[in-house]
């Protein structure tokens, strides 16, 4: 990242590229939409609670998509819900990121064949940055997914959105 590479001893001045600074500030405060769908949401809440402490990565649930940077699709997406998720995603301000959490939102999960009501993967509706496998994934897996997303944001370019 090189944010603190060039530091003057006395004046408290740090030299960095604008790109690095923006990427660092983005990845350090990923506010998520306060939004849960099924049993994955229970694991997501456990990740937010004191034991796993999502807040140490700067992830805070916000109750409005307009104040959020990231949406975690945590659970089974029904066709009825998919239209709502699309609207929530469209209400978020850029730059915005999506973590698809669990088998259901990755690919339909156990409902892949006979689930007449289930969307077989949230990536049919909105673009996904990181897929977290599991049914449901443990909090450690979700943290890993978040770290992967941070890695992606760290390598973003000002002129081209890569994540």
């Amino acid at each position: 990242m090189g944010l603190l590479d060039k530091q003057f001893a006395k004046e408290g001045i740090v030299i960095s590229s604008l790109e690095d600074l923006l990427n660092w500030s983005r990845l350090s405060s990923l506010w998520q939409v306060g939004f849960g769908l099924a049993c994955c949401a229970i694991e997501m809440m456990a990740t937010s609670a004191s034991h796993y402490d999502f807040d140490r990565f700067g992830v805070i649930p916000r109750n409005s998509p307009r104040q959020a940077d990231i949406i975690i699709i945590s659970g089974t997406v029904t066709l009825k819900m998919a239209t709502r998720i699309k609207r929530i995603y469209e209400q978020m301000a850029d730059p915005k990121y999506v973590i698809s959490m669990g088998s259901c939102s990755n690919c339909g999960g156990p409902y892949w064949e006979h689930g007449y009501h289930v969307l077989k993967g949230i990536d049919r509706v909105i673009p996904v940055d990181v897929y977290v496998p599991g049914c449901p994934p443990r909090p450690e897996a979700l943290l890993e997914g978040l770290l992967k997303l941070q890695e992606k944001i760290r390598n973003e370019s000002l002129v081209k959105k890569t994540a």
């Binding site: 339909g108 892949w112 969307l119 077989k120 049919r124």
Partner: peptide, 9 residues
């Protein structure tokens, strides 16, 4: 399809 979303796997 339902509302433009593909339904089968």
């Amino acid at each position: 399809f339902y509302m433009g979303m593909k339904v089968p796997y």
